[in-house]
Nucleic acid binder design. Structure first.
Lengths: 142, 142
DNA sequence: CGGTATCCAGCGCGATACTG
DNA sequence: CAGTATCGCGCTGGATACCG
């Protein structure tokens, strides 16, 4: 289950249900799978081709096997990733994108490309902000 | 227009620095801001126009004020969101997308649109998977 | 190799209260 | 209205150990 525990803040939304702005909409859940920390990177790496589990671990800096397995399961359940097991003596499992998976992954790649292209401008912004912070030590008092 | 040069990732690991596969790359951090649970929704909502804080709270189902403020601060620091304060007696603060922010938001919207369009197919997959699960009860306990 | 199960530290995030 | 500060619970997710 997702979040039956949380007290919902949602009440009057001017946005219609059935889209990502609605907490309970399934689209929101899928969006979160796709944009999740590891889910997004998995899709991006698989865009380069079929990969084995250990290749994914090495390809994605910083993932633990646990989180990778977890992300793969979610994406597989969503029908975005295909899992193929070879019944060989040393187990071999390959992951690849499904048709649907390729579609999202392409959109994700576009987004990522934008980020990588814009990173210098973003970083320039960040330094400027931090400079202001230290330059203005809170003139809060009267 | 996006990537004139090859940021080619040809299957072999030894993940090159400078792209999102590198844990320490700044691009990764920005990507995470943009794709984060609330960050992404903030950008999407702001794509519809300038909004006040409380409007954002109401527009995004399930967000707490704390997380919203936090997300807005991160996005502002990245230079994706502009914050405008009106020195009126009842405080009034408006948030809007910067030029950069609009660019990401558009990519994000593309991704979201895909999800909303494909949600039925995804859900069909999920039910199929769950059906298989209950059909093959694993020996968890006795 | 490719998982899965368990433990547990950390912090994400919600609730509440206070400021301007 | 638009935050900020503080507290604390619970889930996230890393480390470890163990099966097929």
């Amino acid at each position: 289950m997702k979040r039956p525990t949380a007290k919902l803040i949602s009440g009057r939304q001017k946005f219609r249900k059935g889209n990502v702005y609605d907490v309970n909409c399934p689209s929101r859940a899928v969006l979160e799978h796709v944009t999740s920390r590891w889910g997004s990177l998995v899709l991006l790496v698989l865009l380069e081709g079929t990969q084995r589990f250990s290749e994914l671990v090495r390809g994605i800096g910083g993932v633990s096997e646990k989180m990778l397995a977890q992300s793969l399961k979610a994406l597989e359940a969503d029908g975005l990733v295909a899992r193929r097991v070879y019944p060989t003596v040393p187990p071999k499992v390959e992951y690849s994108l499904t048709k649907m998976g390729s579609e999202v992954a392409v959109h994700l790649r576009t987004l990522t490309d934008w980020v990588e292209d814009s990173i210098s401008e973003v970083m320039r912004n960040r330094s400027r902000v931090e400079a202001n912070k230290s330059a203005k030590p809170q003139p809060m008092q009267a």
